[in-house]
Structures are given as structure tokens and as C-alpha cells.
Design a protein around this nucleic acid. Sequence first.
DNA 1: CGATAGAAATACAACGTTGTAAATTGGAGT
DNA 2: ACTCCAATTTACAACGTTGTATTTCTATCG
Lengths: 344, 344
Amino acid sequence: MATLRDVAALAGVSVKTVSNVVNGFEFVRPSTREKVNAAIAELGYQPNLVARNLRAGKTGVIGLAVPELRFSYFAELAGAVLDAARRREYVVLIEQTGGERSAEIELLHGSRISMMDGLLFSPLGLSGDDVRELEVDYPLVLLGERIFNGPTDHVAIQNVEGAALAVRHLLASGRRRIAVLGAHEGEKIGSAALRLGGYRSALEQAGVPFDPSLVVYREGWHRTDGAEAMQELIGRNVQFDAVFALNDELGLGALRTLFHSGRRVPEDVAVVGFDNVTEAQFAMPSLATVDPNRAKIAQIAVDALLERIAWRGKEDDPSPRAFEVPATLVARESAPAAVRSAVA
Amino acid sequence: MATLRDVAALAGVSVKTVSNVVNGFEFVRPSTREKVNAAIAELGYQPNLVARNLRAGKTGVIGLAVPELRFSYFAELAGAVLDAARRREYVVLIEQTGGERSAEIELLHGSRISMMDGLLFSPLGLSGDDVRELEVDYPLVLLGERIFNGPTDHVAIQNVEGAALAVRHLLASGRRRIAVLGAHEGEKIGSAALRLGGYRSALEQAGVPFDPSLVVYREGWHRTDGAEAMQELIGRNVQFDAVFALNDELGLGALRTLFHSGRRVPEDVAVVGFDNVTEAQFAMPSLATVDPNRAKIAQIAVDALLERIAWRGKEDDPSPRAFEVPATLVARESAPAAVRSAVA
DNA sequence: CGATAGAAATACAACGTTGTAAATTGGAGT
DNA sequence: ACTCCAATTTACAACGTTGTATTTCTATCG
């Protein structure tokens, strides 16, 4: 790989002059500029970003830590982050933590971080008790619902309001026996708890009594968990005409079980999920869901991180900021907008 | 951030001694080592990888260029690459090209590359005519079926054999009118052409005549394309008892149309896809498919790339290698192993 | 007790870049 | 031709590491 030095030698100028040309410095004689550019072209010179970044004290790289790319939600989030970062001339290094606490802690405190200007972190293994782990000396922005009120900026989904949207949507179509899949026993914060809270408040607001026998607890978030949770609900022999799955994967699993149990969706049971993953749109029937607005989340998170990066070293860095991105309801076949409309 | 220099000052030794301790150099007096480690702990020193890499002339980073993470296939591939890379102490910088030729070319020749030791590239916009673009001076490994016989290593799926597996599976369950969704008109290489080839050769081998009216051409690879292609097939009024979709997304879209058209899967129509994306497993009915063995692809690709990286500068770098990873058939509800077995 | 070998520690340079400050050039004004 | 200032170019240092070569210890041996 050619270096500035090689180009300088070929063009018969100093290294710094080549650097000036490369960086578009104003005061370079046109004839010199031309000579240098010719040399650059001849050698196929490309600036070495590692050296440039060492010099500049920054890397042009931000990290994104997610549990696993395999899960659509994170893959789509990652895609959105990549897009948002590119718009700001940053590249993204992705790390999979597997959702494991130890891996997350190691990443936060490991030396890989020194390759990044900052980190977008979507914790899963860490809990509220681990906030101390988040006290790091580099810009860090938290995503998701595991940890609130940490020492860093935080971008969250409208969990409560989003869940309420879903429930109101079901109520509006005449459903009154709305089950919940995927609640977490005893949880206070975290997506599950928040969404369950939204469910309860929407019911209350509508004057529909809360019935604990309609709540299915389940730790996992995957399709199999949804299928099993649905199975459990059916096994209880309680009457229900709608299901609010605390995320789309659970909802998709539930659709599967409902189908196998002979129940029609949405005629017998309406279903709404949460996340608006791509698959939801293509499920059979397509799954109504709450769209957390991933592109916006990514944009806000990247912007917040870059702001923090820019503030690095300044004495007065603002205290932790909390962003909340509005969620919207997406009506689909599994819970259409009109009451009991037929399937196409 | 503390540097070696800071640690050295605090410990009262030279910078190089600290470096020696950090790197586990053998000949350091235990007492010195202890002093240094104390200083490291006190300052929370972390090596600066950018500097280390500049010095070492490598970055510890490999690039992965894919069209879009939103598509499950690439998200899952990316996840597998991340895992494979981590096992070899490498991190991965992911770039989305959007599948656009110009973006792909810019990435190949841009300066971002200088942040990477090598690139895993899954082209989509580039075609066989663009092989010249692949003549770059850094280690490059190609993935996928867009370009064969390029000037670089190449890791490919068993497209022909995989497709033949799918078709033989359908034949074995008694199907004889097997439609194909997603063929590309006039294409010679590329996944679609190869898989279509596997389809034809499997039919031929079984003595089943090839019927052009069972082939639905379609450029796109997404679910909507599958749904539309299926619609088109139905519109032709030709008889068919099985569908081989050239990838899972097409297959999932087809399932949807079949469902809406009142056909039962697999009783009336068996369906097999290709790729084994996670969703296939959870579709209703679950989608039988050909598993290209992504984890192995990722592992082989990463290994090949790291080998090339290790060979950098050596005079005798081997000529381009082509790897092919065996595909396997995954029987599922949409095309079970036993003939016309009932749905669970 | 001095020589000597190996261990331990160090100085220095270099990776490729760019900021700083100093040096050189060229042309206008007189 | 001479001065002066802005334009242009340059030398040097530094970003944080580590390889190489060199120096300084220290213990052992004759």
C-alpha cells in the first residue's frame, strides 16, 4: 500500500504537501496540486485511516452491541443503525453478546472499546443492579428496556403507550377478553413489565376489569415461547377473544398454536404483537402490531452518541438524557381496524 | 485514557517495560511486574488498539459487505460471521451496500478498506462483467452466487445439488407436477440459474419430463415476489402438486397465497424452499427447505480470509480457491418426509 | 575478586498521519 | 532593485505502540 511518503517522493514534494492536497487545503499551487494528484493516481494511494485516526485521537467507528443478529428485531435495528451512522460518516462495529451478563460486562470494560469512539449498547443480561458497570469513561448510549435511569443517555421505545395503543385497538373492535402472552412474573422494569402496565391502564381506562387468568407468564421472547404460552392459555379453559403478545415473535408463535387448535384469526381471536418485525407483515394472517419506529430509534441513538463523542473532554457534559420514540399501531389481518371484517 | 507513558511514570519504569508486562514478556522481574500491574490497575490502563494496530500494520478488523441486514438470510449470515471471527480474535465491520452496483464498487475501492485487514463480500449489484473491479490489493473473499471464477477466493453454496435434493425429496413423496418459483429469465449463473439447473437435472434423472409452464420467472427474492409468483402460477390453470421456491422468502410468500386460495399444504401442494432462514421453521405450516449450512459457510469464509491475510506479502499466494459447502434437506410440515402424512 | 553470561531494563526509531511553526517563494508597491 | 506580506511549502513533533539494539544488573564461576 502506497503511503504519503511514496507519493511525496514521486511527486517531488514534501509529505505535508501531499497531505494538504489530500485534505483539500486551500493554499496549494494548482500546478503542485496537479503533480501530486498525478502521483496519487499512479500509485493508487489511499489514506491509511488507522494512522489518520491515531493522529486524530478518534476512530470513526462506533460499536453496536446486541444480543444476537439472528433475531429479526436486532437485525433490523442494526440495519437502521448502519444507515444512520453512514449518514454521519461513521462505520459500525457489531458485537453479539448472546445476551449474557458476563459477555456484556467484558465488552463494556474490554480493550476492544479502544477501537471505537463510542458504544450503542442494547443490554439483555445486565439488570438494574448492574448500573455501576455502565460507569465507563467513553461515550455510551443505552438502548432498550432493561435498564432505566442509568448513568448514560438512553433511547427507549414507548412501551407503556404502545401497549395501550394495542389494547385500545382491540377494545375498539369489540374485544373484551384480551389475554396477554409473555409477561414476566414480578418484574418491575423491562419491556415486559412496561407493556403489561400499558395493557392494564388501557383496560382500566375503558372500564374493563383486569382478569389475572388471562395473563400468561413466560420468560423467553421467541416463537416457541409464544406457541407454548398460547398452549397454556388454551389449557386454562378461560374464555378469550383477543391476544396481546408482548412481542411479535411471541405473537407469531401464538398464531401457529391458534391455527393448529382450529381457532380462526381474527374471527374467533384477534392478535396484536409488538415490534413490527418484517415477518409480521407476511405471517398468515398478517400480524397486527405496534411499530416502535426503529429507524427513528437508530437515528436518535446515533445522534445522541455522536453528540456525546463531540463533547468528549469538554468540562460540562450534560447529565444523562432519556429519549422516547413514539410508537404507532399497525392494523393487519390478525386484528383489522374495522370490527370483524372478513379476511381477504 | 491512560497510556503506557502514564503507567510508566507512575510505576517508575520505562515505557517499554510496561509494554513488556502488558504483553506478558518473560524476562520481567516479579517485583517490577507487580509494581507495573499496580500502576495499571490504579490508572485503569487499557491498551490503545488503534496505536497497536498501526504499529503492527494490521487492524484486527475484517469487513463484511452484504446487501441488507434486514433480510434474514444476511442477518443470519452476519451473525455466523461474527461468531466465526470472534473465535479467531477478529472483529467485524459490517457495511450495507443495498445491493447497488455503485455502492459495491465504491466500497471495494474506497478508503474505508484501510481500516480492515480484509473483506468478505457478498455482491449483488455487481455481475460477472465486473470481475475487474475485484482486482484489489487486499485480501478479499467472495460469498454467494453472483460471480464465479473471479480473481479471489470464493465460498459458495451447493446450489445445484441443494436444489436437486429438494426436488428429489418432492419426487420421493410422490409429487410429479413440481412448479418452480423465482427463476430468472435467460440467466446463466447466479443462484436462480443454478438452482433451476438442479431442478431440471433431478427431474431428468427421475424420468419426469420438464414442463416450462411450471416455471414462474420473477426477478425479486422477497415474500411479495413469492406471493405474486404463486398467484401467477395459479392464474395459468396448470395442474401442480408441489412447489419448489428458489428461496425461503419466495416460499413463505407462496404459502400465503396458497392459503388464501384455499389450497391445503401439504395435502394439495407440497412446498420446499431454499436457505433455511429462521422464519421457515415457524411458518404455518413450517416450511421444508434446503439448509445451505450458514455457520459452516461463515467459518470457511473467515478462515479463508484470515489465511489470505496471513499470506499477505508472501510471494507465492495461491491462486483463487473455490469452496463449496454441502447443503442438506430439512423436511418440515410443508413437505414432510412421509408421503402425505397428516398435519399435527 | 574480576570476568562473564544471561536476565532485566532501557533508548530509539518507526508505523502513517496531521497540527504547529518556521522557512521559502513570488509579486506588488515604491 | 528593495521591502514586505501573503501564498506556498516545508521540517519537526506527536498520536500510543512495539521491534531492535543497547545498556545495566546480578549472580555465578574460576
